[in-house]
Design a protein around this nucleic acid. Structure first.
Lengths: 329, 329
DNA sequence: CTGAAAGCGCTAACAG
DNA sequence: CTGTTAGCGCTTTCAG
């Protein structure tokens, strides 16, 4: 149980005051070059590393970023979380992970998060609160919604341009000869779901078409599988389905092939959204809209670091249509 | 930007000293019942919530548990992480998430983690360090390996009994008439991989059989897909493959069906390990060995909370064979 | 430019 | 049982 090396130890070895060491470590205030060198040397020799807890106590700000996640079963989550923590790690920031309970309002969670004096909060859940942004603003903590946005609250938000993605999906289906189409969405009350649906509808309208049906449910494989069964029963001539995300799409494809005996894409085309790893598995080879994950993360970090520089609240980044084998040529 | 409520404020309102408030909040030391009631009332009225940073600074221990993850692409990770954070949340403990860079030694990571005065460290990466357990022991921080264990270092470890699982898989394949079998493993130098391989080999030996080949690679879909191609070329009469995990197994199944035109399970049986959500998707319906996730997490939390009560270092929990449609009846 | 000194909010002896 | 008193390790005035 060895004692930690403190700034006092470094100061003693360098023959300076502890305050001088602090100034060097915090890169704050002026220190003569030779003194700074002596201090750095002493710190290195002693293996000194600053105590983040003590620093946070006094400054009221840590280098920890809170990430609030919710629907963890969705395969997009681990991909996004992993890329995010990796990016944060490269900036020497840690990630405090909060798991919102199903149905839990973010508003109830944020005050608890704020107690940790986090440097910022990134919210990846679908269920939103209305006052969370306000709490964070009061505390001076940057608050960024990732992957979706809120109509009100004035929070920063970074997301894929789902509307454009939905439109592209519609155009691709129209261009490949589909006419009787449906949208199988995820959580009704979420911005990606709304935008994907609206974009899809808008894209069909360009061709003078309209979806025969528009379903909402959850961003899950099981929902996709369930939804398509009823859908195909009501519309036996259905020739295309645009899905809220890849998980739903996989469920739809599987149900079409294994529950309903339809050929994908020959009889029914299917398009997903996200481009999760499974989308490219040989069993699916899903045509989908890839989220611009790298760009979304970069934008999120910029917002976290310099929220004041950025007047624009909503940042929608264009996705990329990935054409594989669940749509016709 | 409203001021936080501090113990001093509570003390003033309750007409007691700040120390009395601390004793009530920390549940440490004696306080008269009526005084305690007054304090609780004042705290509630003011909306007081303790400052975890200040508390950590003085006690040298936070209520934060560090979770170190690595191979995030593997679908078992989000399932495990999600269940773990959920369990931790129920104990009012937070999760500090560390993403080990690919190939990074845990030993280099742990000292940085320890600076946060975490209440415990749970390691879910496959790459191990040799001194991490020692560092943690020196700092008095419980250290638990999750999902795999180390031969040396004396760290606590909680994992599925992969050896028993491998043996069961072998028995099931033998019982369903397979004779020419191979093991397609993941990361060679990891305990789950070794145990699954050894268990499988032992299980075959019971029937007087031996695997025709034994490959190691990575716990990924792509590796499974690649491995089976060469394997089937060298052993055209192969009739079963036991895989290091479900991701590999999905790759093997897909390659057999779509790259090699074989029928699963009629021509080749495939068994995975973990029972991730995808294993039950209709495109796979994978026979697999389910990890006892709930039990593993419960055991991990117990070890974290009372490490001194537990003499046994290694806790192997039995998995459950889930028979689906990638093995014959 | 540097050191002394005052805390950040809380816990933990220690008297009373 | 309760209040007083030191700090935890660090940042940040404030003199010098």
């Amino acid at each position: 149980m060895q004692k930690r090396v403190t700034q006092r130890d470094v100061a003693a070895r360098a023959g300076v005051s502890q305050a001088a060491v602090s100034r060097v470590m915090a890169e704050h205030g002026y220190v003569a070059e030779d003194v700074r060198a002596r201090i750095m040397e002493a710190a290195a020799a002693l293996g000194y590393r600053p105590d983040p807890v003590a620093r946070t106590l006094i400054t009221g700000r840590s280098n920890i970023v809170a990430v609030v996640v919710g629907n963890v079963v969705n395969p997009f989550f681990p991909v996004a979380l992993s890329a995010l923590t990796e990016a944060l790690r490269q900036e020497d920031r840690e990630v405090l992970l909060f798991n919102a309970a199903p149905g839990q309002n973010i508003d109830d969670l944020i005050p608890g998060v704020l107690r940790y004096k986090v440097a910022g909060i990134i919210v990846m859940t679908v269920a939103l609160g209305s006052r969370a942004a306000e709490f964070c603003a009061d505390a001076g903590v940057p608050y960024v919604l990732f992957h979706r946005y809120a109509e009100q609250g004035g929070a920063f938000a970074v997301a894929c341009d789902s509307g454009a993605g939905g439109r592209e999906a519609a155009r691709h289906l129209v261009a490949t000869g589909c006419r009787t189409m449906a949208y199988v969405g995820g959580l009704e009350d979420s911005s990606p779901n709304r935008d994907r649906a609206n974009g899809f509808i808008a894209g069909l309208r360009e061709a003078g078409l309209a979806p025969v049906e528009h379903l909402n449910g959850a961003f899950t494989y099981d929902w996709g599988r369930e939804a398509i069964n009823g859908l195909l029963y009501r519309h036996p001539d259905l020739d295309a389905v645009f899905c809220g995300d890849d998980a739903i799409a996989c469920g739809v494809v599987d149900a079409l092939r294994y529950d309903l005996g339809r050929k994908v894409p020959d009889e029914v085309s299917v398009i997903g959204f996200d481009d999760v790893p499974q989308a490219n598995w040989a069993a699916y080879r899903l045509t989908t809209v890839r989220q611009p994950l790298e760009a979304m993360i970069a934008q999120t970090l910029t917002l976290l670091k310099h929220p004041e520089d950025e007047a624009r609240r909503l940042h929608l980044l264009p996705g990329e249509m990935i054409i594989r084998a669940t749509t016709r040529r």
